[in-house]
């Protein structure tokens, strides 16, 4: 007899490691790490830049003996090299800020859930306040008061991001903290720190892990926006965002390549990070590992 039920769909059991997004992401990371080896030109080194070759269209041969596959920008920097070096800055800024923000948000969220009372009230009111301010505004104020620089950008992104983690993690930790296994360890003479770090935190971390790649993508975009506005990383350290911003004024005169190619790279990077996020979450869960 044929299979009758049409709703049948076997759940995915295997852990896909080699999917397209993961492969693209790995490629991006490797390209960023190997940028000095791969890039034909170092866009930070003014001596390598030929000013008279500014705004060359894609495919032009350079006087230095290599081809500008993606063209050059208004200063004569090779766009392909700018993308490779820009990736480094973008990934560095976003990964560090997202990781620190996650650690901070996790700790505060779990602490709020476990202790409750006034600890909870104080932490969560700060979170509410933080989340009610527009992200861009908080970042702008932080940059304006702290001054420009890569480290300041990272700090600004942490300030913007930690509250999201704290809120998401607290709600999960709250329900985990009410489960009998937490009661069971509370009947033993264990320190609170140990109960929180060994028992409560690892079981409350899943939403933060899901959030992490989304927030890394978000951080890349935010850094790009800040750079685009001229408040991001300094001009002599091109990130993907500032390279897109560089080309903005040339778009109207038909020199599309200066903004377009870094833009495509930015989009692909963020998309790859977001798609890989779900796999990372599944790897974390012991229940999905052993099936």
């Amino acid at each position: 007899m044929e299979i009758i039920n049409t709703m049948t769909r076997a759940p995915r059991r295997f852990l896909p490691v080699l999917t397209l997004p993961n492969a693209i992401l790995a490629l991006f990371v490797m390209a960023a790490l190997a940028a000095p080896l791969l890039a034909p030109q170092n866009p930070y080194d003014l001596l390598q830049i030929l000013g008279w070759e500014a705004s060359s269209p894609p495919g032009t041969m350079s006087g230095n003996g290599y081809r500008y596959w993606l063209g050059t920008d208004g200063l004569g920097r090779d766009i392909a090299s700018c993308i490779l070096f820009g990736l480094r800055i973008s990934l560095l800024v976003s990964v560090i800020s997202a990781a620190v923000a996650a650690a901070l948000g996790l700790t505060l969220g779990v602490a709020a859930a476990y202790f409750g009372g006034w600890v909870d009230a104080v932490i969560m009111r700060v979170v509410d306040l933080q989340l009610s301010l527009p992200t861009m505004l908080v970042a702008l104020i932080a940059i304006v008061t702290l001054g420009p620089g890569v480290d300041r950008i990272i700090l600004a992104l942490i300030i913007v991001q930690w509250a999201t983690y704290a809120r998401v993690v607290r709600s999960v930790a709250l329900s985990e903290a009410g489960k009998p296994y937490i009661d069971a360890v509370r009947t033993m003479p264990l320190s609170r720190g140990r109960i929180i770090l060994r028992h409560l935190l690892p079981n409350s971390i899943a939403p933060a892990i899901t959030l992490l790649p989304i927030e890394i993508g978000h951080a890349v975009a935010l850094e790009a926006t800040l750079s685009f506005l001229g408040l991001g990383v300094p001009m002599d350290q091109p990130s993907l965002g500032s390279t897109v911003a560089n080309g903005f004024q040339y778009l109207l005169t038909g020199q599309y390549w200066i903004s377009l190619f870094p833009g495509i790279a930015l989009f692909t990077l963020i998309a790859a990070i977001n798609f890989s996020g779900e796999d990372i979450r599944r790897l974390w869960d012991p229940r999905s590992r052993s099936l």
Partner: peptide, 28 residues
């Protein structure tokens, strides 16, 4: 605290899902 121990209703939620049996018991 510590001189009274509990056995809970639902053993599935009374054990930390991220610890092996050995880890949970050794800790205790």
């Amino acid at each position: 605290l510590g001189r009274v121990q509990m056995i809970f209703q639902d053993p599935s939620s009374a054990l930390n899902p991220r610890l092996t049996v050995a880890q949970a018991l050794t800790e205790c």
